[in-house]
Simulated scan of single mutants.
Amino acid sequence: MTTASPADELALLTRLRRDLHRIPELDFDLPETLRYVCGELEALCDDVTARYGKDACTVFSPCKSSLCMFFDRKSEHATAVRSDMDALPVTEKSGAEYASCHQGHMHACGHDGHMAMVLGLAHHLAESFDELPRSVLLVFQPAEETTGGARFICESGVFERYGVDRIFGFHLWPDLAMGEVASRPGPLLAATSESTFDFHGKATHIAKAADGADSLEAGMRFVLDAYGYMAEQAKAEPCLLKFGLLQSGQARNVISSHTHIEGSLRTYSDTMTVTAKQHLAELAESRAAEAGCTCTVHFSEGYPPVVNDEALFDLARAALPDLHELPEPLLIGEDFAFYQRHLPGVFLLLGTGTGIPLHADTFDFDERILAAGLETYKKLVRIP
């Protein structure tokens, strides 16, 4: 079969991305998205099986709201490539002619682009099936933005059944130049843990403050001390704790009996995660006791850190001479981390060059960047 020209590939990527951008859906509730992706994959699979036999290609769902396509080259091991499919509960204000048709939902994090690249790769693999050095598994997962759909893919056993020994994935990244591909060995993205602290005191008029227990003072002292503690920890290993919400009290002249504080902890290793949570809880309890208060502390499980396998990264770097290596890890989280807990994986970033932040209601990008992502995938699946 004739290989598609760059112009044809860009037209394909643009069509796929814009079609998918119009139908954003959330979490595991992805009926239109799944129908669209499945339709594309099954048409390609029919073509491959017509040329190479019924076992050459299969399309299936390993778990809820997911799709996989397997190109079977009868190799001992296979390479996996992942795309997320879910969108965000954001009302789009981009003004694009291909804007969301679903009120209150938007592909504001680039998952439409992620799907377009992997679907574009599926087209390429169908065209060049007999040139592949190993089998390839394409994975389309739900719920990256919410509960971590990657975890359910791993638990399905699909990687073991198909002999997958490595996985690659992309995320669009506004802070990189248009079309630039970047990553780094080792830690790339942070573990995330939503952190909640409640200080319980005793209300009284401020004129009789000694009779009360000031939860607001305890909470404020804790915030400042927590920031100081994390700043010291960051000297040894990158980490961050920031609070974005503090609610306390009922009136200006009444000692507050309850202070509620919410923030997010970001770390890059299990050791730092465990250590920071332990010490922050101890610090909260200490500041509460000093003020005659009690406290409750909750840390969400969150996503693990995205840590690129160094041996696989070396293979990727050799295949990608233009790969830009980032000097420091970044502070966002991504559920690709669950795959890397299961098998060696490398996650990459693809620059949009726009500077419009992820999750913004005006997020958009030039589809020409997707061609750079597709070319990267073509090289990665050809690593023996």
Rank of each mutant, 00 (worst) to 15 (best):
F170I: 15
H102M: 12
A108K: 00
D130H: 08
V139S: 05
C101E: 15
C109L: 03
G104M: 11
V118A: 11
G157H: 08
A99R: 14
R166Y: 06
A99T: 11
L138K: 02
L125R: 02
P142W: 10
Y162Q: 12
Q141T: 09
A122V: 10
C154K: 06
L121Q: 01
A126M: 10
G163M: 08
V139W: 00
G157R: 10
C109S: 02
H114W: 09
F140K: 06
F152T: 10
V136E: 07
S100E: 03
M106P: 11
F140I: 11
S135K: 00
L121D: 08
D130E: 15
F152M: 14
L138I: 09
V136N: 01
V164F: 01
H123L: 13
G120D: 09
T146L: 09
V164R: 07
G120Y: 01
A150P: 04
E97W: 13
D165P: 00
F140V: 10
S156F: 00
C154D: 00
G104R: 14
I153F: 05
D165C: 04
T147I: 11
F140N: 12
E97A: 15
H114Y: 09
G104W: 04
H105E: 10
H124K: 09
I167V: 13
S100R: 12
A150M: 07
E155F: 01
G149F: 03
A116W: 01
V139L: 12
F159Q: 08
E144G: 02
H123W: 14
M115C: 05
E155T: 02
Q141N: 05
A150W: 01
Q141F: 01
Q103W: 02
A116Q: 08
F129W: 10
H107S: 09
H124C: 15
E127T: 12
V158H: 03
Y98E: 00
C101F: 08
H102V: 15
V118N: 06
E97T: 15
Q141D: 02
D165N: 13
E145F: 02
P133M: 07
E160N: 03
E145G: 09
H124D: 15
V118E: 11
V139T: 09
H114L: 12
G104P: 14
A122Y: 09
F129L: 01
T147H: 12
A99N: 10
T147Y: 11
Q141C: 05
H105N: 14
S128A: 09
C154L: 03
H105K: 14
V158C: 11
A126N: 06
L121N: 02
P133V: 10
D165I: 06
G149P: 06
D112C: 08
L137N: 06
E97D: 10
A116N: 01
R166E: 03
M115L: 14
S156M: 01
H111R: 01
V158Q: 07
Y98R: 04
G113M: 03
